[in-house]
């Protein structure tokens, strides 16, 4: 029988066979593993669990536990460097390079004062107040390439960062926000939709008061006179010419600051924002006005 005959025979056979479908195929060999423990040859053995102990009984003890001994990792006394780390305020970093990048990409409007709400709005920075994040730590990465004149408000800044921003003729303020106001700044739309009145911003906790009242860190509670003195000191230290704010065409924008009790720019505590009807509800009651003004 020649090969041609075999081919034709195979083809006629194929024609008579049904089409391959889900109904007549089967799994590849070895696709399914039998979940049962066999009792045949080697089946009565230890089944790969070893002899006695944790392996057979599946009681895997926690790391470092020595079945009741004083564990090795607890034997030596140590200095508790990270004591209370879970209670400390954290400031997730955001660099000057990233700030310049979002300015280049038109995600940030520098003709308006910048605060944490506008930086979060850009989509390039996020933080979680419930993880003890208290806002932006502006870091000096990219301080050399930074070239924008801005009025920025962050929660933490080093001296180099302050110098880099003031060198370009900008203004920087460090301001404290309590976690509740940070939630509002993170997603203002969600808050406005909830129909609640804008709350007051709380004052900083005792251990943060020194930072936010000092002119060196450009604290929002610092004396403006002291700040202008320190601006000159920093300009002399880093060797750049200080821009005169009063002569600047954007003087009004550069001098715009929030009230220590204010959360959003231009919106006062106590107001209710109605996004649907585009109107603002301002409290008329003297009792409420006194409460929100305090």
């Amino acid at each position: 029988m020649g090969s041609r005959q075999i081919t034709e025979k195979a083809l006629t056979m194929l024609r008579s066979l049904p089409r391959v479908s889900l109904g007549n195929i089967r799994d590849n060999p070895g696709y399914k593993k039998n979940p049962k423990r066999g009792r045949g040859q080697h089946g009565g053995d230890k089944h790969g669990a070893g002899n006695k102990g944790s392996g057979q009984r599946q009681n895997y003890m926690r790391l470092g536990y020595e079945t009741g001994n004083n564990p090795f990792y607890l034997r030596m006394p140590h200095e508790h460097y990270y004591k209370g780390h879970h209670l400390r305020r954290q400031y997730p970093p955001f660099s000057l390079h990233e700030l310049q990048l979002i300015i280049d990409k038109d995600r940030l409007d520098i003709s308006k004062p910048i605060d944490i709400a506008s930086i979060v709005k850009s989509g390039m920075y996020n933080f979680t107040p419930d993880e003890k994040h208290f806002g932006i730590n502006l870091t000096d990465v990219g301080a050399d390439c930074f070239a924008a004149k801005i009025n920025i408000e962050v929660q933490w800044a080093s001296e180099q960062v302050i110098a880099a921003i003031e060198k370009m003729g900008g203004v920087i303020t460090t301001a404290y926000y309590d976690p509740h106001s940070l939630y509002l700044l993170r997603d203002p739309k969600k808050f406005f939709e909830s129909g609640q009145s804008i709350p007051r911003r709380m004052i900083p906790p005792p251990d943060a008061i020194e930072y936010y009242t000092s002119a060196k860190s450009r604290g929002y509670l610092a004396d403006p006179e002291e700040i202008s003195k320190d601006r000159l000191r920093l300009a002399q230290k880093y060797g750049y010419e200080l821009h005169v704010l009063e002569d600047d065409p954007n003087y009004e924008m550069l001098c715009e600051r929030k009230d220590p009790r204010q959360i959003f720019y231009g919106l006062e505590p106590g107001w209710v924002i109605n996004l649907k009807d585009q109107c603002i509800l301002k409290p008329k009651d003297s009792e409420l006005q006194r409460f929100f003004a305090s």
């Binding site: 585009q278 109107c279 603002i280 509800l281 301002k282 409290p283 008329k284 009651d285 409420l288």
Partner: peptide
């Protein structure tokens, strides 16, 4: 409490 409703406010 009484609220003053301002439509098309300048603060919008």
């Amino acid at each position: 409490y009484e609220f003053e409703i301002i439509k098309n406010p300048p603060e919008w």
